[in-house]
């Protein structure tokens, strides 16, 4: 059990995809205009990551080496389709606000990166825990970024108004604000980690 806990901690802290590995920057920067968007994008990615890690760890001995990337992409795309149809059916608002970035999870390099570096070398159970750890780390990063940007940009957190919107700096909702906020968060995380 200790081994699986270590895998989760590793994904969340030591190999945090947002702040340490710096993978999956496209959804990280583009969808975190508010805390709820960041959280839902993180959870959506986590769902795909866990499922694809599991299936790929089963397929690892059956896939010929030459076509392993197309096989992974096909597996990931299957789960993204499942996710997108589920979101459309049960959470249409989130589907509308994330828009194109749900199908783009197919090419999210966090998921392909974990398939390559972890799931294709480890057993199914370990792969599930890796998906949970990395997924939680990604969700944490996106939610934190979303909270900061929503607070600075429109004066609210998860839609709870903390100060009037006219005092918010619009820049933080726009793309340049994402880069600035991410830069400062990475700096703070590096300081805490003592890098």
């Amino acid at each position: 059990m200790k081994k699986y806990l270590d895998i989760i901690v590793n994904g969340f802290v030591k190999e945090n995809p947002t702040f340490v590995l710096m993978l999956g920057m496209c959804p990280t920067l583009a969808t975190t205009t508010s805390a709820i968007n960041g959280l839902s994008m993180g959870l959506a990615t986590m769902f795909v990551l866990i499922c694809s890690n599991l299936v790929i760890s089963f397929l690892k001995n059956l896939t010929p080496d030459k076509v392993h990337i197309p096989v992974y992409i096909a597996v990931i795309a299957t789960f993204v389709t499942v996710l997108q149809l589920m979101l459309k059916a049960y959470l249409p608002e989130i589907d509308a606000s994330l828009g194109l970035f749900i199908p783009l999870i197919v090419v999210n390099c966090v998921i392909l990166g974990r398939a390559e570096s972890f799931a294709s070398k480890n057993g199914p159970l370990a792969s599930i825990f890796d998906g949970i750890g990395i997924g939680l780390g990604f969700t944490f990063g996106l939610t934190l970024l979303g909270i900061c940007r929503e607070f600075l940009g429109s004066g609210s957190v998860f839609g709870v108004i903390l100060f009037p919107e006219s005092y918010g700096a619009l820049m933080f909702i726009l793309p340049p604000g994402a880069f600035i906020t991410l830069g400062f968060l990475v700096a703070i995380v590096n300081k805490i980690r003592g890098v």
Binding site: A169, L170, L174
Partner: peptide, 8 residues
Amino acid sequence: AFLLVSFP
């Protein structure tokens, strides 16, 4: 530039 974009 920050102010111009933030507080148009």
